[in-house]
């Protein structure tokens, strides 16, 4: 056996794919001459073939389930992050709407107090804002939760939320005929329903976005 030791080593080198050309020649030449080594070599190859003939087996059913169940609990935070990653658009849209409508409704319901963008030269009676005769408002005017009576003149735009423009009865006063009908030289907008209010907001946002 000892005499074949070197050759057996070569066989293993062959099986590992490490044999050089010269060694291969030495081995094949020896195998032709030596029956014992031939047998040994054959047995080795057959052993490998036998091992490899065993069939494949699959993991038991629910293996993955069982592993997943046995894992330590993950942090709660991850679940939220996964929701974001799984449906980024949906979540972004939901967040957007919540903030937008939330903001608007709270604005709408904020109070029924009268809000006027500027009070200089204006007379306020209860929930009515009066632009007195002979007064000219040069800026834009914004009124929330109030009505507007224009006796004077407004050069800017007028926006009224939750209120309306009250047309004064034309005065019979002759010389006041012209002046008694208030003048709004800018655009007049009256908003008094929630959808219009939303629409107004969206317009504002869009305008702001494009103005940037």
């Amino acid at each position: 056996m000892d005499a074949h030791k070197e050759h057996i080593k070569l066989m293993h080198k062959y099986l590992d794919g490490d044999l050089t050309k010269e060694e291969e020649l030495v081995l094949s030449k020896h195998l032709e001459e030596c029956e014992a080594c031939q047998k040994h070599f054959h047995e080795l190859n057959r052993t490998i073939a036998l091992i490899q003939s065993t069939e494949q087996i699959a993991a038991p059913l629910h293996f993955t389930e069982n592993v997943m169940k046995s894992l330590p609990k993950e942090k709660k935070r991850m679940k939220v992050i996964r929701l974001f990653k799984g449906h980024p658009f949906l979540v972004a849209a939901a967040v957007f709407f919540v903030f937008m409508f939330g903001g608007m409704f709270s604005f709408w319901n904020q109070s029924n107090e009268l809000v006027v963008s500027k009070t200089d030269n204006l007379i306020i009676q209860g929930d009515t804002v009066i632009v007195p005769e002979g007064v000219t408002i040069e800026d834009d005017l914004l009124i929330k939760n109030g009505n507007l009576v224009v006796k004077g003149k407004i050069d800017g735009n007028v926006t009224i939320f939750n209120g309306k423009l009250i047309e004064e009865e034309p005065s019979q006063d002759q010389e006041g005929l012209m002046a008694s009908v208030g003048e709004v030289n800018g655009e007049l907008k009256t908003v008094d329903r929630i959808f219009e209010w939303i629409w107004y907001h969206i317009n504002e946002i869009i305008q702001k976005v494009f103005a940037m």
Binding site: Q56, I57, A58, A59, P60, F63, T64, V67, M68
Partner: peptide
């Protein structure tokens, strides 16, 4: 989960 599914047969075997 996907990792387990991918390797379960090999590792079990």
């Amino acid at each position: 989960r996907e990792i387990v599914e991918l390797y379960q047969n090999k590792i079990y075997q």
